[in-house]
């Protein structure tokens, strides 16, 4: 089985590759159309700013390829947000796989809620094979200032300022806002479950 990790100007890609290596997966980092199209699984990592990332994807024409892919696809962190319709981060039109909007956390008081949302928070109301072997309220590691709104595609939610979509699923597309590669055994299990799909 070959796992293509989409190469673009996003941070933390190396950590995703190391995590896949620990799971024994055969992962390659690539922006090549052919390699991505024929891979058994595709992972779309990300950390960074939405409009810059979209610009890069367009330059490489990956914005056209990604929504057409048919194999199990996993968007992580910024990868989740880019699969949505629109992000408030620099008013960016995204890939539109999920009819979901990405908004910025707007807490009323910084004393109660810091932004970015940094650290370990729980995922609840789990409903997907991605959570095989995991308990309700498992902890995952977050670093983000923007969140995806709840929708019919939400398969787990997290509460910070409000309830937001922690993980989403539609057809072959799965996404996760937190970092599975940095979420200890819980994150490894989610990645493994994705690889088992």
């Amino acid at each position: 089985m070959e796992v293509a990790v989409i190469k673009y100007n996003a941070g933390n890609v190396q950590s995703v590759l190391y995590a896949l290596e620990r799971l024994g997966a055969n992962a390659i980092l690539t922006d090549d159309f052919e390699r991505i199209s024929t891979a058994d699984k595709v992972i779309f990592p990300g950390q960074g700013e939405a409009s810059t990332a979209m610009r890069y994807l367009k330059e490489k024409k990956l914005d056209l390829l990604i929504p057409e892919l048919k194999q199990p696809f996993f968007g992580v962190c910024l990868g989740q947000q880019l699969l949505c319709e629109h992000s408030e981060e620099n008013d960016t039109t995204c890939l539109g796989v999920f009819p979901v909007k990405v908004k910025r956390f707007q807490p009323e008081s910084i004393n109660e809620f810091k932004v970015p949302h940094v650290g370990w928070n729980s995922i609840s109301d789990l409903r997907s094979p991605l959570f095989e072997g995991l308990n309700e309220d498992s902890f995952v590691y977050y670093v983000h200032s923007y969140y995806c709104e709840l929708s019919e595609h939400t398969i787990a939610s997290t509460n910070y300022v409000l309830d937001f979509a922690a993980l989403m699923h539609k057809d072959n597309f799965y996404t996760m806002q937190a970092h599975p590669e940095k979420s200890g055994l819980v994150g490894e299990r989610i990645l493994q479950n994705f690889l088992n799909l």
Binding site: Q14, E21, R22, K182, S183, G187
Partner: peptide, 8 residues
């Protein structure tokens, strides 16, 4: 370290 551990 990055290869060995799964926390930040």
């Amino acid at each position: 370290v990055a290869k060995a551990i799964n926390i930040p």
